[in-house]
Design a protein around this nucleic acid. Sequence first.
DNA 1: GCTACAAAGGAAAACGATTGCCGTCCGAGA
DNA 2: TCTCGGACGGCAATCGTTTTCCTTTGTAGC
Lengths: 338, 338
Amino acid sequence: MASLQEISQRANVSVATASRVLNGSSHPVSSQTRAKVLSAAEALGYTPSVLAQLVRKGQRSRIIGVIVGDVSDPYFGAVARGVEEAVADDGYLTMIASGRRTTAAELDHLRSLRDHQAAGVIFASSGYENDPLTEQAQELVDSLMASGSIVLALAPRDISCSGRIAFDDRGAAFDATRYLIGLGHKEIAFVGGPGGFHTSTHRRDGFEAAVRSAGLTPNKRLTGGFEYEAGYRAAQHIALSPERPEAILAVNDDVAIGLVVGFRDTGLRVPADISVCGIHDTRPASYVGLTTVAAPLSEMGHAAGLAILNGETSGTTVLPHHLVERTTTAPSSARAAR
Amino acid sequence: MASLQEISQRANVSVATASRVLNGSSHPVSSQTRAKVLSAAEALGYTPSVLAQLVRKGQRSRIIGVIVGDVSDPYFGAVARGVEEAVADDGYLTMIASGRRTTAAELDHLRSLRDHQAAGVIFASSGYENDPLTEQAQELVDSLMASGSIVLALAPRDISCSGRIAFDDRGAAFDATRYLIGLGHKEIAFVGGPGGFHTSTHRRDGFEAAVRSAGLTPNKRLTGGFEYEAGYRAAQHIALSPERPEAILAVNDDVAIGLVVGFRDTGLRVPADISVCGIHDTRPASYVGLTTVAAPLSEMGHAAGLAILNGETSGTTVLPHHLVERTTTAPSSARAAR
DNA sequence: GCTACAAAGGAAAACGATTGCCGTCCGAGA
DNA sequence: TCTCGGACGGCAATCGTTTTCCTTTGTAGC
């Protein structure tokens, strides 16, 4: 509340001197005056106006924005936690802004982050094809980068930014599918997210490639949302379908869990009757013992945080994933031996 | 990037006029000059410096900070989503800051929120007893409120702020316990969070009151963390204990789910051998069919968002909870009839 | 006793805005 | 013709800082 102005009056010095004492400067100040200023500041409870400092110095603030698709999705929680761990010790502040899966909301957040001169922006959510707002987003990203902010994408996006840190969506789906094939399953389906999202598409591509490479024909792939409910609903359909697959790869854990619970609610046994595999390995996966591909979520966040701290301004990093086998998948023979 | 200065030069008007045109003012400007300014702004790609505006006008920014304990806890996700829905249409931005369950980190976030003149701050996480940093937190909250920010607590906190919006921790635990008693259980235990947290304590109090009011003696209550793992570990102990309870109330859903999975992993049947009830009704609760008390999480967030929008500066609101019966609880007779 | 230089402090111009106050111009009313 | 008032625009102060130039003073070196 108290300004340098008031401090300087109370201490009988100029504003310049007060500034020099209170906010580090190389300009020398005698220890007497320094003491006077310090005690005045103490008495008045001085707090520098960070806003004014930013205006004057034109620097970046110590805010790092993480743009996520859904605040209650544990995927984003993991990423955000990684960012936080990387930057908290350096006094940077991670703020999570939810795009609620709409680009319009993301634009609002980008604008606000630009307005407040954020040190960095991290896109944790995937973009989607033919997004009419891409151009606007790119403009905002450009202006952010032009003014010194670092913009990183952790998921596929039609935006050129300072750098990318991700895992291999296609490869993860490919590996998971190979694993299911290795279990002896022949009829394998992919349950994807909402159409058009890049992650969905890449993962579906990986799935198809694996199925084809094994000489099988890719089974029907149903689409839905990214949430539990979408998986649950899909399970209802699949359970009733005449040509029910033996195994399913879901686009992510939430959908996979929805499938598992949905199947069980309709009387199917998982994995005896049908195997289910997810992608991400978020916390709830272990709640239901889901077999899934562990994605380096917090590692990605961590790397992104460090990149912003170090001002790294280019490059692409791909972090490794690995399969975590739990209890929702079983060899095909288990079914035959029933 | 372009400043009013540059705009005014290009349009051959004074900075004052440019300001009046570009950022609404009641002062009249002829349509000719207006057009000149507008086209200059367009050509130069003018964006007002929100920071400078804030410095000059001393107003609050359009940022609302939500301080949570753990970004991957779905409890906080629900609250944040509620806030978001309430304020997004008015152009306010919800930013989630993780206190990582330490007051020191919370203080950092509070400072940053104050520095950026946030419109409001919402405490979604509980405080704990004898927190040595309470005083500092109170000072920060006071300075925030003094400068016009609204500070709301959604969980018990030893801080006096603009208002409180919550549900009845004690009552929720009381009702859940009465429900378990109503099922015929006599040996009921409470598995609490880390010692000292107000929510833990209030819920334990509600539990004890219910048990006592039924003429039973409160069973041992084990403490742990707020997470799944704490519940899982507790389940290991309880399963091996000679005087195993018939029913358990957990401090929240995550712990309850940990208990359920933990029990099943040790061969106990839930609910046949032991009933488990949670508090919150977060998403994962439905994944495992957990019986739990539904807390008005997003409603609290929503109400808090509206309160900040409307500048409501006082009052306490308590929102209702209700029990959601699923499949982790069963009557005691089910056990006897085994 | 002179110069030279470092230390110490202040005045004032920025940064990018907003706004109170004043001057000019014009048309309307007397 | 004179006056009055409103429309319109600019000057300059202001917000809370930082930073570039001074100016003054003290001291060391010759």
